[in-house]
Design a protein around this nucleic acid. Structure first.
Lengths: 128, 128
DNA sequence: GGAATGCTCAACCATAAGGTATAATATATG
DNA sequence: CATATATTATACCTTATGGTTGAGCATTCC
């Protein structure tokens, strides 16, 4: 797999801001013009416009100028690269999920066996 | 699922830098102390140390101080939240994959039916 | 044509980010 | 104890980021 480092930089950076993530959520429901995209946020149109430009640079938003309005639409494809990068680490967090589950099960078993002596039960081995 | 916005900010921001992503790749092979983690990069130890701190703040790295060395280990779990956020958009890029595939199939069919210079050129330039 | 609308641009500001160099701290080692 | 090692802390620099304001540019409406 080719490491498209700059692209990943742009994608993750674009996603690192809550305003931009919210904009993407809005766009998931359908195309929006700049004004409508900006409306929910407590900032000037110019500021929102900058955020949109960041999303565009990351390839997450496409713009089609129709008359005086700019219609933005979602392009989620670049996220795929981000997910793929993270997927290399999936096994690690799955591992942790397993450990957590094992701990909870062991705890439950200990509690069921001896509801009073929890400390002892936790400390000693539980293989049976 | 609760939107842990700040947490996502930190995770995506941590992942938006190539040095930090490379550090995580190093840590995937096992725990490393700060010096070893920093070694591959053309920057001072202090700069690398800052990157590690960013990763720590995002919860992606844990540190255990052993004597004078700090041993860092990967904690991929926070990435899960990032992937989960992006997964909401999976259908969109899958959709696009479908469209792309359909286009390619249609192109191939057209090429088979009417071999022309342009379609042949397209087929050959398809590799990216 | 003139005014309202939708949006970008440019300049500016404060703060964050990424980097450096130079201490400073804690711990090994001879 | 003295010194080397591993790492952080502090101060500083430059550039990026997120925000504002005010101007400018098309486009649509009356």
């Amino acid at each position: 797999m080719v490491e498209h480092s700059e692209h990943l930089d742009a994608i993750f950076h674009a996603l690192s801001d809550p305003t931009r993530r919210a904009m993407l959520q809005g766009l998931a429901k359908g195309p929006r013009n700049v004004g409508d995209l900006a409306a929910p946020f407590d900032m000037t149109l110019a500021a929102a416009s900058k955020h949109i430009k960041v999303l565009e640079k990351a390839g997450l938003v496409r713009r089609s100028v129709q008359g005086r309005t700019h219609v933005c639409s979602l392009d989620a494809m670049p996220m795929h690269a981000g997910v793929e990068w993270m997927r290399h680490y999936e096994k690690f967090w799955n591992q942790q999920f397993d450990v957590l589950e094992a701990l909870l099960v062991a705890e439950d078993q200990a509690a069921a066996a001896k509801p009073s002596e929890t400390t002892e039960a936790k400390k000693k081995g539980k293989k049976s």
